[in-house]
């Protein structure tokens, strides 16, 4: 027997295009948390703004579900909508974020750091926010949301090689910045 959980995202969107509320509820259950957190990180931990944009994203889905091509991946599409919402928000702020491709001068801390989660949280958020916007976007999509490189290329609307390059740069920069924190960091708390 086919349950709702077994229905693919794309099939749910087909149902939503026909006006099925249950399909919307299921898609909301599957993606709202992920989209919210993705936007939360992209908006520099501004939760209120992330909640507003999350509402906008799902309203867009409800108001114009026919814009989604059911032959494509829903996951890629909804993350694209969310990423574009964040970019539009920053554009409306008139340069409120780092230039998309500008490489930062990240300062590395070689001095011993107190090994706790709060320190790591602060260091990671600072490092992520200092990264070029597209580096951070690629990093979060890959290592938080688990999207494949091809899916990230779809979301960011760029070639696969560009995604690899951005990820490589992001991990190297973060590695340097977070070098004082070791893998056993959270185990010690």
């Amino acid at each position: 027997m086919k349950t709702i959980k077994n229905i693919s995202d794309e099939q749910l969107m087909e149902q939503l295009q026909a006006g099925a509320e249950w399909a919307f509820n299921e898609l909301y259950q599957r993606y709202s948390q992920r989209i919210l957190y993705f936007m939360y990180k992209m908006l520099r931990q501004d939760e209120a703004k992330a909640q507003d944009l999350l509402q906008d994203v799902f309203l867009k889905i409800v108001e114009a579900p026919e814009k989604f091509n059911v032959q494509r991946s829903f996951k890629t599409w909804i993350f694209t909508v969310a990423a574009n919402s964040c970019k539009n928000y920053f554009r409306a702020q008139k340069g409120g974020f780092l230039d998309l491709e500008q490489a930062p001068n990240l300062t590395t801390t070689q001095a011993p750091v107190q090994l706790n989660s709060e320190a790591f949280q602060e260091a990671l958020n600072t490092a992520l926010d200092e990264l070029p916007y597209v580096y951070k976007e690629a990093f979060v999509l890959k290592y938080k949301e688990g999207l494949s490189l091809k899916e990230i290329a779809g979301v960011m609307d760029c070639p696969l090689g560009t995604v690899k390059s951005r990820l490589s740069s992001a991990t190297k920069l973060l590695g340097k910045r977070l070098a004082p924190f070791k893998a056993s960091l959270f185990a010690k708390d």
């Binding site: 990671l124 290592y143 991990t171 973060l174 924190f181 893998a183 960091l185």
Partner: peptide
């Protein structure tokens, strides 16, 4: 880089 990724994932 690996340490940064793993720690970030846990933190995320």
């Amino acid at each position: 880089a690996r340490n940064a990724i793993l720690n970030s994932q846990i933190f995320f």
